[in-house]
Nucleic acid binder design. Structure first.
Lengths: 205, 205
DNA sequence: GTCTATAACACGATAGAC
DNA sequence: GTCTATCGTGTTATAGAC
């Protein structure tokens, strides 16, 4: 949006794939995810994005604001994918398996969202924290509804649906901790195994 | 160890329960766990422990050294508890359930160990990182052996034993993220549920 | 929209008195 | 073993030229 594009030529390059803001977000995401919010300085982010600090502050009013913009963008993406996955499939078991697969795959591309959900929230302002917690809750409700549907129609029988949801999401998030592209299993294989683990847990745990 | 104790009186107070070093470690552990390694300054740690920065450096040669000492101490504790739990019980299923219960309980008291296992390792020196990774691996081997025993005697049939181990440990670690003492379930109830989830996962996932 | 320069302050660490 | 004082550097953020 915005994108005034001062120059006359409105050629069909259809939005440059790497605008400055895009590069900034990607640099910030990669750095935050690998070292954590507090360990990353704005100088480092700016350098990685090919900007100076002064220019960085044109896109975000503070380091926290930059973090928040990044997290909003990534939550929007993973939540959209989750909604789509949860709507695909005729049975709760199929829908949950799709959800798990989508989430494991999203993990690797948008791992910032989950890696930064621990200590980082203790560091930022209460207002920012509240917003991020709300986004996380919105995401988790998608899972809650699928599990509830499965309980209602008898295909799931978890001892405690809430704890089952926590454990399953936690299992998925864990993949980002050890996954390496050159590992023993492909990401597709991993997401398949995890989805069956989740179903096993919902049927008996 | 060391503990020269320059003063003459070797009275039987049997080591004060809250020595300065103890207080320092507790303060550092609580702060590191809640905000992350990078977000905590040595000033804050010193203040919380009731010391000045100068005194803090009498107990550790650097911030990283302090972190390392803390993590060694906590890993020793959780690993010892895990070993004990894994040795208690006649069947692999019982031993694994004990392991899960012990780990979930340890989570809350020594949560630093697990909370600091992500981005923090990217921030510290390679030598320190290698040592902590080795301690984590040692801990995970305890789980690996129990799972292998269960596979060998046919009581477990996980699709992928390694992924099952990762997921189960991840499930346990997740408890520390949301557990509150005034919550719906007690820690004992939670650890029981998680242990059954783990068994469900090992039998069919 | 990007830059240079810098303000204002916190950081980890050290020296040396007691 | 604890303190005060301080060094050098890094931090986030801002001002203002272009």
């Amino acid at each position: 949006m915005k994108r005034t594009g001062g120059s006359a030529k409105n050629v069909d390059v259809a939005e440059p794939p790497s605008s400055t803001e895009q590069r900034l977000m990607e640099a910030a995401g990669a750095l935050f995810a690998s070292k954590g919010y507090s360990a990353v300085g704005i100088r480092e982010i700016a350098r990685e994005a090919g900007l100076t600090i002064g220019s960085l502050y044109h896109y975000a009013s503070s380091k926290e604001d930059l973090f928040l913009k990044l997290m909003r963008r990534n939550y929007a993406r993973v939540t959209a994918r989750a909604r789509e996955a949860a709507a695909t499939g005729s049975t709760p078991a199929e829908r949950l398996a799709n959800l798990v697969r989508a989430h494991v795959l999203a993990e690797v591309s948008d791992s910032e969202v989950w890696r930064l959900n621990r200590s980082e929230l203790e560091v930022i302002s209460p207002e920012a924290r509240a917003e991020l917690v709300a986004l996380r809750d919105e995401f988790e409700q998608i899972w809650r509804r699928v599990i509830e549907d499965g309980v209602a129609d008898g295909s799931f029988a978890p001892e405690d649906p809430v704890l089952a949801r926590f454990s399953i999401i936690q299992m998925c998030n864990g993949v980002a901790l050890w996954y390496r592209p050159d590992g023993r299993l492909t990401l597709d294989e991993i997401s398949d195994v995890i989805s069956r683990q989740a179903l096993a847990l919902l049927r008996a745990g």
